[in-house]
Design a protein around this nucleic acid. Structure first.
Lengths: 386, 386
DNA sequence: GAAAATAATCTTTCAACAAGAAAAAATCTG
DNA sequence: CAGATTTTTTCTTGTTGAAAGATTATTTTC
């Protein structure tokens, strides 16, 4: 820990406070963070000099005394690009440092490993054109549906069959701005903390489903990565001894009961209609298909059991469920709640501790942006914050 | 984070470095921690002035140049007392700040809640007499076999039937030295990090069994307590859907398959001999009792499944198994290893990632001491470190 | 218009790290 | 054996950055 650690810590906290609470005054920052007024004043002025933060008169004439001045992240002070790599598409999002979305684009993706870095680099360039901002691209965050180690290498992407790809190196070569990569579960958890349902929460567990089941552990204010960077593989919690086989090679994993393909398999095994996709399952459930409803109910039970383990392990104030879990919320939540009441430790379970994310809002689409913003504000060598 | 945060951080790191590596030189500290030589010199000298640290000429004349001076924690610089509360006994240990055990005593315990604080306070006083040290008692750490919240209140002790006891307040009233309380699993994990198998490990998961199954999560250099202080209840991970009933009220918990009483039940259900205790089980296993061996093998399988979940969740470099799990290691490890190879994610599983603690050594007996030392060196208001 | 209230800044002080010189204490070398 | 060399530790000086208090700025209230 070197000399300027405190300065960076304070600067980062103040920056994010302004970001998540636009129009805060210095006094509010002081109250909330407990930092000294001189510290806040000095750092805010440094930000303003850099052009990172702007002041504007507060609309609300609050009372007597000198009115406070609102602080906002200067909209044109920098550009972030987020890329979400999925099995069959690439989602590009461009944001200001304040997290305001400026442009968005989805490209189909064939899953070819050869040349991905070029495809992504071009996609980023095109999106920056579209965004039409003069601001410099400060960081590119790439969220990946697989295991990403501490060095930014992809260990394994089950959905695409990739193994041992030094994706960070490749992307850094191909792109002109600094690149930050990460696991999708971890990145989405970060996004939920930065922009979504978990702003101002110091501890929560995030879990999502889709082609697989993943998650992120947000502990004491940051993503917990574990010794190798791979922590948070919540889809491979064992829930049934000698249970169904999973893509990871093991048996009885949560993912083998909850992923889209697992649900599709189970529904087609029990009935005569094979759903073509997860959206189709939701349609069938909406139409009242009893087999689908039954399968989803059982999935909810299994999910509730896994969540109760997580609650007993982490004693979290919130477990947030996203991705297709959030989409299926109406058909899962009953069984989940029932399982939780039965299985979670009474001292750690409280009603409302498990929430479904708003489908489509905030989190997932911004997972790449979260990686970029985290990189830009925290990573060593980044020059954005003092 | 106030001004002296860095000083405290540095002082704490230097103190513990000297503690776990007696006879280090300043230069070694500098190399290991990366702190500046001035910082180390200044803090070490402050310690020496306080009488907390002593210098002594190093025996090994290493080479040419000025020989380094070895630093040790001054043996008489302070006394710590650790108390471990168990279902039927109280274990008292007195140590110096260096962790050297000076006295030890075990008292039978009737499990009565009324007056425990007095019993413990007297036990502490007697032990301090026995230790025969002039040093002042700097802290008393009390390790409790139940859920301890952030305020030091006991939420629930299943083995004793206690609920909602403000044990910290009571003990603080009864004792003359500062008291620190904690959950046994968390405290033992701390002890393993301070004195045992996990010195210098930043991340590991500790799990133990006995009258119940518990654990501690050591993440990024500290015990993770969760939002409410209750994190680490690894005994209540669900491993079997609709499984055996557990003392926590749920079903299918690991504890219901692995605790001493669960093993006793299972063995007596399958055979005609009911073991009187866990020690008896080990004797029977040693004698080659096929039923006992079979039950332990199955327990190992179940344990391996739970550990594989933990590995997939935390990506830890080590999972340490203590308590009666360590005692039963010869009869468990085969099944555990087999389950791990089958169930843990190949990217996160490495041979040797799961270890059994040395039975009786280090960890458990020092769990109270770990709480005391942690309190004395980290807690706000403690005046030992600057 | 003066007083009171509130927000932000400025000035001074102090703690703590940082860098380099110097001192201390040994070994090596000719 | 004397001086050179090496290594460890301390001392001196400089700089950063937070803490505290006074000051300034800007409003409302009376």
């Amino acid at each position: 820990m070197d000399r300027s650690f405190l300065r960076r810590y304070h600067a980062s906290a103040i920056f994010h406070r302004i970001r998540i609470q636009p129009d805060v005054s210095q006094r509010e920052i002081i109250e909330r963070t407990g930092f000294d007024k001189s510290t806040v004043s000095s750092i805010v002025n440094e930000f303003i000099e850099q052009g990172l933060v702007e002041r504007r008169a507060k609309v609300s004439a609050s009372g007597r005394g000198r009115p406070s001045e609102g602080l906002i992240i200067a909209p044109g002070s920098g550009l972030l690009v987020g890329v979400e790599v999925e099995a069959n598409e690439l989602i590009f999002v461009a944001c200001g440092l304040d997290g305001a979305v400026l442009a968005e684009r989805v490209l189909p993706f064939d899953g070819q490993l050869a040349g991905v870095e070029t495809v992504i680099a071009h996609g980023v360039d095109d999106l920056v054109q579209m965004a039409g901002s003069e601001a410099r691209v400060l960081g590119i965050g790439v969220s990946l549906p697989g295991l990403v180690d501490m060095d930014g290498a992809l260990v394994h992407v089950p959905a695409l069959g990739w193994r041992n790809v030094d994706i960070l190196d490749r992307l850094t070569q191909a792109c002109t701005a600094p690149v930050y990569v990460g696991n999708d579960g971890q990145a989405t958890a970060m996004a939920e903390n930065m922009f979504g349902a978990c702003v101002d929460l110091e501890n929560f567990i995030y879990m999502f489903s889709g082609s697989g089941v993943g998650g992120g552990l947000f502990l004491d204010g940051t993503i917990y990565k574990g010794a190798g960077g791979l922590a948070g593989e919540l889809g491979h919690i064992k829930i049934v001894p000698q249970g169904r086989f999973c893509t990871c090679g093991a048996a009885g994993c949560l993912s083998a009961y909850l992923s889209d393909s697992a649900l599709i398999e189970e529904i087609s095994r029990l009935g005569q209609n094979r759903p073509a996709s997860f959206e189709h399952i939701i349609d069938m459930a909406g139409a009242g298909d009893p087999i689908v409803l039954n399968v989803l109910d059982h999935a909810g039970e299994v999910l509730g059991s896994a969540i109760s383990s997580l609650i007993n392990i982490f004693n979290p104030p919130l477990v947030l469920l996203g991705g297709d879990l959030a989409t299926a919320a109406p058909y899962l939540s009953g069984a989940v709640d029932k399982a939780l009441r039965r299985l979670a430790h009474p001292a750690m379970y409280k009603a409302g501790i498990v929430k479904f994310a708003e489908p489509g809002v905030g989190g997932p689409r911004l997972s790449g942006i979260a990686l970029a913003l985290d990189g830009v504000t925290h990573a060593a060598g980044s020059q954005i914050l003092p």
